[in-house]
């Protein structure tokens, strides 16, 4: 059962900021959740769960520029919705290949890099975005994706390795 979100936030000014963020972004979050779940009741459940997760780490991430905070929130909503969908449909998750340890990226043409990023799976692209563009630490990434910090580290490494493989296929080697 969701307890008061604001009890998770110590500072009164931050509470007000969270409340404002909620009203400004709840419709956007609802659309992101509904796009995954196609069910309004489930989408509202996912949305409230996502706000709860946001409240838990709001003190750490509230200082992100607003567009980045929105991006973080949307990713959190989508992943919360996906987790609900997996529970509903018993989707099997892909096991990670622990042999993918090399994560250094070669020097590449910038447009090729962007193209390869586009070709990554949604999950891989998301985690790289959280880590390198939003510059979140692993505990903050774990909170957004409802995974452990260890899993977050592994996923970042894995996603970077997959990007490296795509770049190697384009003829770039480190």
């Amino acid at each position: 059962m969701l307890s008061s979100y604001l009890a998770l936030i110590d500072d009164n000014a931050l509470r007000s900021e969270f409340e404002t963020f909620y009203f400004e972004n709840r419709l956007k979050g609802m659309r992101a959740a509904y796009n995954v779940l196609n069910d309004k009741v489930l989408a509202e459940d996912a949305l409230s769960e996502a706000f709860f997760k946001l409240a838990k780490c709001f003190q750490k991430i509230h200082s992100l520029p607003s567009h980045k905070l929105q991006a973080y929130f949307v990713i959190t909503v989508k992943n919360t919705a996906l987790n609900m969908l997996k529970k509903e449909t018993h989707i099997e998750t892909v096991e990670y290949d622990d042999e993918l340890e090399h994560d250094e990226l070669p020097e590449v043409d910038y447009s090729i890099l962007k193209d390869c990023i586009t070709r990554l799976g949604d999950t891989d692209r998301e985690i790289l975005y959280l880590r390198f563009e939003l510059e979140l630490n692993y505990s903050e990434i774990a909170a957004a994706l409802s995974i452990s910090e260890t899993a977050a580290r592994q996923r970042v490494r894995y996603a970077k390795s997959k990007l490296r493989k795509l770049l190697e296929k384009e003829g770039y080697h480190g």
């Binding site: 692209r125 998301e126 390198f132 563009e133």
Partner: peptide
């Protein structure tokens, strides 16, 4: 990488 991600994913 950060810049590329911002442009692709933003």
């Amino acid at each position: 990488l950060k810049q590329a991600l911002a442009e692709v994913c933003g």
